[in-house]
């Protein structure tokens, strides 16, 4: 059953349920001898847009990937709207919970990762078909709607090989939205694009934020962070060094490492 139908029966729409929070608690992750996350916690309210910045190698990607368990954290836990998964453990039941968590936490990759053997529409409806068990007709209506929303009405039946980078990334955003996620994680969504294509993707993300979508965005786009973020988090060396509302964060960074970093990106 999709959120609209549930809503009609009096069950709150996921985008409206206020209690819902996205939290990561005490995430640790090491690759061999290298400790990449040294206990990262964050808590995000429904509808909040959080931008994560930090120098290369500071653990931003790893943090995002631990939140949806693409990377197994060594310690810590993640909660998305009541669904909780802890580090450690195996087994089918845990696997199922991780899959549920991933369905609630959409992800947009730096390198798009579209399915090359499916059309734009095929990419978008794959999750609804396979995971939500939506009917094909229902999924296609949703898919066309979402592609229109990201400005790709004309490309519904195009294969990824015939789309520009910016168009690919917008399909990827529509694909994430198709699962009606509680939060969408973005890992440098514009970094692989030519500069002139950044704006179309950022514009799509702005619109998403305006619609009330909860977003965690790793990016170096300072302008986007200033305009759209409710909060900016600065990471370095596997920890959160400081965070605050963008106006404050960019005007008066407290920590010297933040200041050094901002001099570089601005």
């Amino acid at each position: 059953m999709n959120p609209e139908e549930l809503h009609a029966q009096g069950i709150p729409h996921p985008h409206q349920s206020r209690a819902c929070q996205i939290r990561a608690e005490g995430l640790h992750k090491r690759f061999g001898a290298l400790e990449v996350l040294k206990g990262v916690s964050l808590s995000i309210n429904k509808g909040e847009v959080v931008v994560i910045m930090g120098p290369s190698g500071s653990g931003k990607t790893t943090l995002i990937r631990c939140i949806n368990f693409l990377e197994e954290p060594d310690q810590g836990r993640v909660m998305v709207c009541g669904l909780e998964v802890e580090s450690g453990g195996r087994g089918g039941e845990r696997g199922r919970r991780i899959r549920q968590l991933r369905a609630k936490a959409g992800m947009v990759f730096q390198s798009f990762n579209l399915f090359p053997h499916m059309t734009a529409l095929g990419n978008v409806i794959e999750g609804p078909l396979q995971v939500l068990r939506m009917s094909k007709a229902e999924a296609e209506v949703l898919g066309v709607q979402l592609l229109a929303k990201v400005g790709l009405d004309a490309k519904v039946h195009e294969y990824p090989s015939r789309l520009s980078g910016g168009q690919k990334q917008r399909v990827a955003i529509a694909r994430a939205l198709a699962m009606s996620p509680e939060v969408v994680l973005f890992d440098e969504p514009t970094s692989a694009l030519d500069p002139e294509l950044h704006e179309e993707v950022l514009q799509t993300m702005r619109q998403l934020a305006k619609d009330g979508m909860t977003m965690i965005v790793v990016t170096h786009e300072v302008k986007f962070a200033r305009e759209v973020a409710d909060r900016v988090i600065f990471m370095d060396g596997g920890v959160i060094v400081e965070e605050g509302p963008p106006a404050e964060f960019f005007a008066n960074p407290r920590h010297p490492r933040t200041r050094a970093f901002l001099r570089l990106v601005e």
Partner: peptide, 11 residues
């Protein structure tokens, strides 16, 4: 990345 993209929609 194809595995990961599939996994992130919950497959």
């Amino acid at each position: 990345g194809q595995w990961e993209a599939g996994y992130t929609v919950g497959m």
